[in-house]
Amino acid sequence: MTSRVTFLSPATSPSLRQARFYDGDSIDDTGAARAREAAGSLPVPAHVVMSPSVRCRETAEALGLAGMEKPELNGLDVGRWRGRTLDEVAAAEPEAVGYWLGDPGWAAHGGESVRDVCARVGNWLDTAQDMNGRTVAVVEPEVVRAAVVHVLDLPATAFWRLDVPPLTATELSGRAGRWNLRLGRPLSLSETPTAQ
């Protein structure tokens, strides 16, 4: 049996536009409109899951998807940095930002490490291989990065080298622990939805 998981990154929000660590804000009007326009471009899923965040829930709704929130698909917990811009944190704690970007096991900000989020998402993905039909997962960009690190068996240091634009699809297909990867397809009305 071939498993298919399509990870969708959320629409734009003020925190994304301001390079601010996500703090629970809603998607913006432009992001919501783009998601509504792209609603017809997705294959018909058997399962829909999402990160338990406002912007993922709102993106799913704008895409016409209803599903379950999965705590294991939560974005990276950045602890006390939540709601602050990267520039603010870098000015106040330059050494900490350096450790955070360079050491995947570092979590002194009071949240979780990159290594931990990669393991958490990898564990979920291993169980997703047992689900019948296509799964669409509307998830935070860090979840997409962690999934790519897992399926390609990359070192956790590669996490920050992966860019995940808003409203893009990263598609996985595979069986017996081996995944194939298709990165960053923009959602577009020019594609015809198919059931697989």
Rank of each mutant, 00 (worst) to 15 (best):
H47S: 13
R178C: 13
R145A: 07
A96H: 13
V138R: 06
E95V: 12
G174A: 07
R82A: 12
L63C: 03
R80K: 09
A156H: 12
H109I: 13
E72V: 13
M131D: 13
R82P: 10
W106N: 10
T135W: 00
N123I: 07
V114H: 08
V148K: 04
A176Y: 14
D116C: 09
V148L: 02
L167T: 03
P43D: 08
G67E: 00
E69Y: 02
V149S: 01
E171K: 08
M50L: 15
V49D: 05
E61G: 15
A60L: 08
T135C: 05
H150Y: 07
V89M: 02
G102N: 13
R120N: 14
A146D: 04
A128S: 07
L65G: 01
R182I: 08
V148T: 01
V136L: 15
E142F: 07
G133I: 09
A107Y: 10
Q129A: 15
P165C: 08
A146G: 10
P71K: 06
P45E: 02
P141H: 04
A176L: 11
R82G: 00
G105E: 15
L181G: 04
A107I: 06
R161H: 11
F159T: 03
S53A: 15
E112H: 03
R80D: 09
R175M: 12
S53Y: 00
R182W: 08
L125P: 06
G184Y: 03
G110S: 04
A137Y: 00
A137N: 01
E61P: 14
D153F: 01
G102W: 02
N123V: 13
A62Q: 08
C56V: 02
F159C: 11
Y99H: 15
A66K: 10
V148S: 06
S53W: 00
V48M: 06
A176T: 14
L181C: 02
D163T: 08
A90L: 14
E69F: 05
L86P: 00
E88S: 08
P71L: 04
A62H: 04
K70E: 15
L172T: 14
E171L: 10
P52A: 01
E72I: 11
R80G: 06
D116Q: 14
A60D: 10
E72L: 10
L65E: 04
L154H: 04
W160S: 11
G111A: 07
V149G: 01
A62D: 06
A146V: 05
V144D: 11
G177F: 11
M50Y: 06
